[in-house]
């Protein structure tokens, strides 16, 4: 290997990683939310027998949905890598916040995959599990996926700080997305209350801790994905690696360069 050989930026791979953001949010919406009947999720106050029956009735869709989610969830990591690379263009190569963002996105995948694995196992083993065991495992998955929120919070905070520091006349990621990130983090904190409530807004299925905290995060993921895809195209143009028209053709008409 020639150590003096320049390393050209692989924009194609970068764009591919950026597009894994939409793969994540569309995949989870369809497989976790719709197919596995988690809109709304089964309430924390549901009796053990009813939980068992829920999994018995929905064994096949939950099995398929959770299996796919365990795979699709990894896209959050690759999306985080794409975000991190964009952040480096603002923060510089030695920036710590870009590292925090990527690590945060990667670790966020861990509780997601573990929780989905537990829900999958309940569905697979429903005929040999007691209702109490189903209830315990169901709670376990929710505690793991919800209470790991601080890792995701660090990811979001890091991205928000860096993109707010963007000195471009038209920043790569608009300020409102960054501030929405802070809103998302603020909405996460009450999630700490889920171990204490089985009813009301602070239960894991409750008005606040499900219907506000998750959609708020979801809006952040969707909006950040859109602007990261655009940002990679803009950076490619800034670098002079492609003409604007070529980039537009490559990206299609849905999300093109600004």
């Amino acid at each position: 290997m020639n150590p003096t050989q320049p390393n050209p930026t692989d924009y194609g791979m970068w764009k591919l990683m950026a597009w894994t953001g939409p793969v994540f949010f569309i995949g989870f919406f369809c497989m976790w939310g719709l197919l596995a009947s988690n809109f709304p999720p089964m309430a924390a106050s549901t009796s053990a027998q009813d939980m068992w029956q829920h999994y018995k009735d929905l064994q096949t869709p939950i099995t398929i949905g959770m299996s796919v989610c365990m795979v699709v969830g990894s896209c959050y990591m690759t999306f985080g890598a794409a975000v991190s690379r964009v952040m480096r263009r603002i923060e510089g190569g030695e920036g710590m916040l870009a590292n925090i963002e990527m690590t945060g996105a990667t670790i966020t995948y861990c509780p997601i995959v573990i929780a989905c694995g537990i829900w999958l196992t309940i569905a697979l083993q429903i005929d040999v599990l007691s209702p109490e065991m189903v209830q315990t495992m169901y709670y376990l998955a929710w505690m793991i996926v919800d209470l790991a929120y601080m890792v995701t919070s660090w990811q979001i905070i890091a991205a928000a700080i860096v993109f707010l520091r963007d000195k471009r006349e038209k920043p790569l990621v608009p300020a409102w997305v960054c501030w929405w990130g802070f809103v998302t983090v603020a909405s996460f904190f009450p999630v700490s209350l889920i171990p204490f409530f089985k009813t009301g807004p602070f239960a894991f299925h409750g008005m606040f801790n499900f219907w506000i905290a998750f959609p708020t995060w979801y809006i952040w993921i969707v909006s950040m994905s859109v602007f990261i895809i655009k940002a990679v195209n803009r950076i490619e143009i800034e670098d002079g690696a492609a003409s604007p028209s070529a980039v537009r053709e490559q990206s299609g008409s849905l999300i093109g360069a600004r």
């Binding site: 300020a175 409102w176 960054c178 501030w179 809103v183 603020a186």
Partner: peptide
């Protein structure tokens, strides 16, 4: 900054 108003209204 405008962003803080986004945060305040959402909060």
């Amino acid at each position: 900054v405008e962003g803080v108003w986004v945060f305040v209204l959402a909060d």
